[in-house]
C-alpha cells in the first residue's frame, strides 16, 4: 500500500489519490535535469562560443553589447532552470516530461489542477529544497512528510499524485470458446453473483497469463478454479481437459451478463425522461 489521500467533495463524492513518493519523483527529476542539460548545451553553448565571451572580464570593462548578451544569456539559463518546470506544469496539466514518463502529476491540495501562481511558488522554492546539495533538504522533508511533499509543495499548497493508468476491461479477445455451452451446463447453467475477490484473480490471470511458465499457469489455474467453483454447482467431473478454458468461459459469461445488465439499466434511465417531455 502506498500513501494515499482521500478528498470529499461538497457532493459527498470521495476521490482517492495515490501520492507519489521520493523515489519516483527523484527519477522524474533526473529525466527533467537531463533534458534541461541538453537544452542548455544545445542552445546556449554555440551562442556563447560564437560570441567568444570571456566571463573573466570585469563588468566595468565589458562593452554594452557584451553586457546585454550576458544578461540575455543569464535570463535564458534561468528560463531553462526554473521556467522549464513552470511552463510545462502550466501547459501540460501539472506534468513535465519526466513526470509524464513516470505517470506523475502536480495537483493543488483540493485536487484541482495546478495554476500559474502555485507552480511559480513551488518551483521558486526549489532553491531551498536543493540545499545544501542535491535536494537533501527536499528529500528529508519529503521522507518525513506524510503526504510526501517537499518544502516548495508545502509553501505552494500542492502535492504530486500518481496518475491512474486505466486497465483494459477486456483483457482477452474473449471469443466464444469451443465447448462454451457444454461448460456452462456443467457449471449449473446459471451465473451466480461473483465478488471482486472471486472475479479479480480470473481477470488478473487472463491479463498476465502469457508471462507465466507452463507449470505456474497450471498451478494458478487450478488454484483460482478451485476457489471460484465454490460459487457454482458443477455437475460431475469437468467436461474438458483444459481448465484455463473454464476460466475464460466464466469470465466471458460474467462480462456478457454484466453488459446486458448495464444495457437494461441504461434503458430504464432513459424511459422516464422521454415520458416527461411527452406526457
Amino acid at each position: 500500500m502506498n500513501a494515499q489521500l482521500t478528498i470529499r467533495t461538497p457532493e459527498n463524492v470521495h476521490i482517492r489519490y495515490d501520492l507519489a513518493g521520493p523515489g519516483s519523483r527523484f527519477f522524474a527529476l533526473v529525466i527533467d535535469n537531463l533534458i534541461q542539460g541538453l537544452l542548455l548545451t544545445a542552445f546556449l553553448w554555440p551562442l556563447a562560443k560564437g560570441k567568444n565571451l570571456d566571463l573573466n572580464t570585469l563588468p566595468e570593462k565589458m562593452g554594452l553589447w557584451d553586457g546585454l548578451f550576458l544578461a540575455v544569456l543569464i535570463f535564458f539559463i534561468m528560463l531553462i532552470a526554473l521556467g522549464y518546470f513552470i511552463i510545462f506544469e502550466c501547459l501540460w496539466d501539472g506534468q513535465t516530461p519526466g513526470k509524464k514518463l513516470l505517470g506523475l502529476k502536480v495537483r493543488r491540495l483540493g485536487g484541482q489542477p495546478v495554476d500559474f501562481l502555485a507552480s511559480l511558488l513551488r518551483n521558486l522554492f526549489r532553491i531551498v529544497d536543493i540545499l545544501p546539495v542535491f535536494y537533501v533538504a527536499g528529500f528529508l522533508t519529503m521522507f518525513f512528510n506524510s503526504m510526501g511533499r517537499r518544502i516548495g509543495d508545502i509553501v505552494a499548497g500542492t502535492m504530486v499524485i500518481r496518475e491512474r493508468r486505466s486497465k483494459a476491461p477486456l483483457p482477452v479477445g474473449l471469443a466464444p470458446e469451443e465447448h462454451e455451452e457444454e461448460i456452462k451446463a456443467w457449471l449449473g447453467g446459471s451465473l451466480p453473483e461473483l465478488t471482486e475477490g472471486e472475479l479479480g484473480p480470473i481477470r488478473e490471470y487472463l491479463r498476465r497469463c502469457d508471462a507465466f511458465a507452463p507449470a505456474t499457469r497450471k498451478r494458478l489455474v487450478e488454484g483460482i478454479l478451485r476457489r471460484v467453483l465454490v460459487c457454482f454447482r458443477p455437475a460431475g467431473p469437468m467436461p474438458v481437459v483444459d481448465a484455463e478454458q473454464v476460466l475464460r468461459v466464466i469470465y466471458r459469461w460474467y462480462q456478457t451478463a454484466n453488459f446486458a445488465r448495464e444495457e437494461a439499466e441504461h434503458g430504464r434511465e432513459e424511459k422516464p425522461a422521454v415520458s416527461y417531455e411527452n406526457p
Binding site: M1, N2, A3, A20, G21, P22, G23, S24, F26, F27, A28, L102, G103, L104, F143, F144, S146, G148, R162, R208
Partner: peptide
Amino acid sequence: PMGIGEIFDRCFYILR
C-alpha cells in the same frame, strides 16, 4: 505488479 518508481515509493513509504 509495480513499476520501478512505485517500487522505490513503496520502499520509502514502508520505511517512513
